[in-house]
Design a protein around this nucleic acid. Structure first.
Lengths: 242, 242
DNA sequence: AGAGTAGAGATTGTTCAACAATCCTGCAAG
DNA sequence: CTTGCAGGATTGTTGAACAATCTCTACTCT
């Protein structure tokens, strides 16, 4: 927090306000969010399978929160698409099908490809350091794949695409992407062998990253488009084989 | 719904009660959703202006729900972007600025234009009757404009774009669009004279509709793109003039 | 007088227990 | 086999209580 701020009161006050807001935002981890984090992991890591019902009474005991707080956590996850409410019947882990695959990938394609293509005409060119998170994700995925830790590879892959979208500096786009990727994780759990699903795409992630690094945004967008079409087809094939 | 746009509490409470009775008649979902529907209408129709704070105790009395249920409704609307929480200070109608205009229109452009362009390669060609809701919206907007009822013209315009997105048959796209348009309505309320904002675009809506009817999807997409760029610029100009 | 501070009052954040409304199950009658 | 009806279980909603935090006022000190 060592910034050489010049002495104007206006700037200092704004700076203080920013820091205060930042701290307040981090303090926001309430009981509901803690419960939601636990449930999110349980869902995305497969402990709670699609179709499973989440009993309120049981979970209030396990998570040690009140029913109201638990329901708040349910709402958070509902917004992310990881749970669905059925009136007077409770919350369930949604069961997605092929139509959802098509729907989700349609959105992914149009959004991600547009973000990458849009990088070409930024008024200040994209600074190199903005690509560093992407590089870290690519390397994490490669390392996890080498070690055979496919769930970790999947997580790194998700982070890569989330960081890719983040280059657009759009809060709403980030929000939408968070939901899309969370729903995709639900779909991946239908697949028996995650290795076949992820392995071919790790190298392609690196290819896209390299093109971004060389500022060849149009070519990166083209590759991303093909990547997403192939990935969708892989998921659809896995569905048929199941 | 005759309403005096005065800021006095008495008038606003009466207005809320009217909407409450209106919505309760046709709504059989949960109390929280009912309350959320009432508040959503109050916000999008301008009774609750950007920057306004929503007092919990006041609204529990007006809406006749408990604080917990009301807060549930707040959360629903927060997820839609129609309310923002400030920790320990309450919920407020957000005040959007130029950056939000740019962000929202960026998303609108990429999504709407892609939907229209995608109509060209549907396996079963788009049936004509799918365009009927759009026609109704165009005509409603023209009628409202002729009568000088600009809020109604704005509503019809919103419905036109929502139905346009609906042609894609994507539940997630519909969901996202609902949120984007709701936020746009927040922005429109900053504008003093809605007439100037809507009038030029009513004829262009008809133009886009006619092109869709003639199955000239690429040309319709091009016009839509220009439409959205101009609309964004109009909003930005209105912001500067304010 | 002006700046800073302590505290009262008001509002929000969170939890709990109880009751109402609804759904599911199993069984009996047609 | 279908339909209708208890009874039990689960969710939906409420009101109250208490903790945490903010805002505003009044006071103190320089």
């Amino acid at each position: 927090m060592s910034t050489s701020q010049r002495g104007d009161d206006e700037g200092r006050q704004a700076w203080l306000r920013d820091v205060a807001a930042d701290v307040a935002r981090q303090d926001r981890s309430s009981s509901a969010e803690r419960a939601a984090n636990i449930l999110r992991r349980s869902i995305t890591e497969g402990a709670l399978r699609p179709g499973a019902q989440l009993s309120e009474i049981e979970l209030t005991e396990v998570l040690d929160v009140s029913r109201n707080t638990l329901r708040e956590a349910f709402r958070l996850l509902t917004h992310e698409g990881l749970l669905v409410y059925k009136l007077h019947r409770g919350v369930f882990v949604p069961e997605l099908d092929e139509r959802d695959v098509v729907d989700l990938y349609r959105l992914r394609r149009v959004l991600e490809v547009d973000v990458v293509r849009g990088l070409a005409n930024r008024s200040p060119e994209l600074p190199e350091e903005r690509l560093e998170p992407l590089q870290a994700d690519v390397e994490a995925a490669e390392a996890a794949a080498l070690a055979g830790r496919w769930p970790a590879a999947g997580t790194a892959n998700m982070r890569f695409h989330r960081h890719l979208i983040g280059l657009a500096d759009s809060a709403r786009l980030d929000d939408i992407t968070g939901r899309l990727l969370a729903e995709l994780r639900l779909l991946f759990h239908v697949i028996a062998t995650p290795q076949e699903l992820y392995e071919p795409y790790i190298a392609r992630n690196r290819g896209i990253f390299e093109l971004l690094w060389e500022r060849k945004y149009d070519r990166a967008a083209d590759q991303l488009q093909v990547y997403l079409v192939d990935s969708e087809q892989g998921l659809l094939d896995a569905f048929k084989a199941r």
